[in-house]
């Protein structure tokens, strides 16, 4: 402590009490001014929402109550009655994804099928899939672009769509300080949107840039809302939480293909059960030249890229 900061005893200063009162008043004023924008927040969480337990600790009754509550909120906001469910992981199933890098033409239909299916915010724009236009012969992601337009494929280019790689050793899961994101038994890394505190450590940790943050209240036109919803997948997200690809849980756990697989006009996208030796995904892993993105970071993705030979 330097000399000046010693309290003076000679009576020229002001008393500590007076100082504290003045400083506190000024500090309260500053805080009030800083928090002023909060007065616009309309719907604060209800008490039961506030006291909710972590997803993995919910009893079936808790879950039913949460589903009812969220359905009601969605109906109030969008005027659409959602079919909100929480399909459990299937026994003996581990999901895997393969993308034929030699076939993709970069048309971005997968991006928009995903936006549609998963109720992503239209403006501000949130998209789980990024399609990188790469120079033929190069594997340098840094020199790629996502901004191409018009007719595709462009000369001397190939296309590499990137989305959540559903890593076996997921850095995002390790980074999350509140365990709001974790890996399910079928391999899908999910997010509890009510548990996420919005710290975005997971975004910093992800080597694939696959996670998106809701900086603003998401905006979805009511007539474009997909009413088939999963609790851990595509139900509308609040502002201030992170979201990402979840292999269309609400579809795939009911045996369907993800929306991006269904839409791909070139048939580059492949999906299936890694534990089934006869599935198309197992067949590709056995017979094609396969690689994973950024193998050197040791994340062990469940998302594979392959070539024909």
């Amino acid at each position: 402590m330097s000399e000046e900061w010693k309290p003076v005893e000679d009576g020229t200063g002001i008393s500590r009490r007076a100082f504290l009162a003045a400083a506190a008043t000024a500090a309260v004023a500053a805080t009030a001014a800083a928090l002023a924008p909060m007065k616009d927040i309309a719907d604060l969480p209800s008490l039961e929402e506030f006291l909710r337990k972590h997803y993995t600790e919910l009893t079936p009754a808790d879950k039913a109550a949460i589903i009812a509550r969220i359905s009601e909120q969605v109906e109030k906001k969008y005027g659409v009655k959602p079919n909100l469910t929480d399909p459990p992981p299937l026994d003996g199933v581990e999901f895997g994804y393969a993308l034929n890098i030699g076939r993709c033409v970069g048309c971005r239909k997968c991006v928009f099928a995903c936006v549609d299916e998963n109720n992503q915010s239209r403006n501000p724009e949130i998209q789980y899939i990024r399609v990188l236009e790469m120079k033929k012969g190069s594997i340098d992601v840094e020199s790629s672009t996502t901004e191409y337009e018009g007719e595709v494929p462009k000369k001397d280019s190939y296309y590499m769509p990137v989305q959540c790689q559903q890593c076996r050793k997921a850095p995002c899961v390790k980074a999350c300080p509140v365990k709001a994101t974790w890996q399910e038994p079928d391999g899908v890394v999910v997010i509890d949107y009510n548990w996420c505190i919005g710290c975005r450590y997971c975004i910093a940790a992800c080597p694939y840039g696959a996670r998106r943050f809701n900086w603003q209240e998401p905006h979805i036109p009511a007539d474009e809302l997909n009413p088939e919803m999963g609790l851990l997948s595509n139900r509308p997200r609040p502002k201030g939480v992170v979201e990402k690809c979840h292999f269309c849980l609400h579809r795939t756990r009911n045996g369907k293909y993800p929306a991006c697989v269904e839409v791909c006009p070139t048939g580059s996208r492949k999906f299936g059960n890694l534990l089934d030796p006869n599935s198309e995904i197992s067949n590709i892993l056995q017979n094609k030249r396969v690689y994973v993105l950024k193998e050197e970071v040791g994340t062990l993705p469940r998302f594979y890229y392959y070539f024909d030979i």
Binding site: K256, Y257, V261, F271, G272, E280, I284
Partner: peptide, 18 residues
């Protein structure tokens, strides 16, 4: 084998298959 072209519907054979 499902590596060329596209499949739609269900990956799960029990649910109707691709």
């Amino acid at each position: 084998n499902g590596a060329h072209g596209r499949r739609s519907g269900h990956w799960d054979v029990a649910k109707g298959g691709p």
